[in-house]
Design a protein around this nucleic acid. Sequence first.
DNA 1: CGAATGTTTGATAGCACTCAAGAAGAGTGG
DNA 2: CCACTCTTCTTGAGTGCTATCAAACATTCG
Lengths: 223, 223
Amino acid sequence: MKNGKNDTVEDLSRQPDLGFLAELVTLQRLVPPGSVLLPDPGFALVRVERGIGIRYALLEDGRRQIEGLIYPGDLCGLPECVLGEGTSYHEALTAMSVSHFDPLDVRQSRAAEQLPGQVLLWLMATESSRLSQWLVSVGQRNAQEGIAWFVHHVWERAGMAGLIQGASAPFPFSQQVVADVLGLSLVHTNKTMRRLRDLGLFRIASGRVEIASISRLRRAAAL
Amino acid sequence: MKNGKNDTVEDLSRQPDLGFLAELVTLQRLVPPGSVLLPDPGFALVRVERGIGIRYALLEDGRRQIEGLIYPGDLCGLPECVLGEGTSYHEALTAMSVSHFDPLDVRQSRAAEQLPGQVLLWLMATESSRLSQWLVSVGQRNAQEGIAWFVHHVWERAGMAGLIQGASAPFPFSQQVVADVLGLSLVHTNKTMRRLRDLGLFRIASGRVEIASISRLRRAAAL
DNA sequence: CGAATGTTTGATAGCACTCAAGAAGAGTGG
DNA sequence: CCACTCTTCTTGAGTGCTATCAAACATTCG
């Protein structure tokens, strides 16, 4: 019943047990594609049950930097909840099912028990680690490597969420989204993705992606 | 005596009380410029007392992405300590004075008390927030905006650490470091910095930076 | 079948990279 | 105090990856 935090390194790939949050659920909600999860007046903390989304920041002039993908099992809004500031937008790309919490309840619960605090710490550390890798891809990889990395990342996230069926994973990301992940233009993203597709690295159709060889993809991503 | 977490938004700019860690200090150490703080066999968690450093990731082929600056009051190695993996390098740019902890002690202490757990959560959330802004700069800003943002960021960090003296802040960052922060080449970084300097946005000399007008700098950074 | 969204392609411009080498400081030893 | 070395900063020339502009094509959806 204890969530295994002290196990091995492989532990990273497992989802933590968020069961302790069940009693705090304020509301469950179905979110249609394209709508904004957070910020949401009145609700600060959201757990994802189903569906895929993105987290991003906006510059005054409209430039958008996508900071992370949202998969089932993720807890959104935690940094904002802890710091009381910071504006990350969370948006659904597919239909999503989410649970809302009152952040005050969570704070009290964390104060009362110790395990939840450790889980929250684990969640933040995981997200921090992902952000670091994301930053490396945006800063150091060229368009070809960056896109290969992104596809690989999507594959891994889907695997961890148990969303890989057959030989394909969900891929609800438009090329504009991929461009805003890597800081590239839409046109250049398109041409580069087509080249990688022609090379046989992956195949995207009807919202799903198939990967020929993961090791070849990793090599193309300079991973 | 309580650390003010429920205060206002301004709270972000204040340092948390890390006093509870005092009893856990394993070792104090002086680190010369250019040497690596972490990873360090045997030590996982480090608190910075004095000096300035950087945190970075390395790609196989030698490319380096700097992920954050290290100032007095920072706690280094927390994500690695929580996750038990992930390799961020921490390096001193000036002479540094640091305290080491045994991560197991910290884990037990966190389990015993609740305040430390909240402080750790606050630290991780702060670092996560900084990483997001860092990512936006690397992904969306051009060279000119990015460098202006970096100087502004350095100014803010120095201010929070109480390191601003007169009209100048410490600037122990070589142009190669600035380049690896933003994912630019050294040559382009140099030319862009000189242009901004000629525009009168800032002045760098003998390891310190002076800023003419912060609002002008913010405008140049598209902040 | 239109309207909207997303994908694809060609042409042109520009920001940033690479290569090469000189100037300027900083630290060291004679 | 002066050579010497090393690191850092600076500059010029040429290349190329990526951005921008414009427009056609495909797909989804009501």
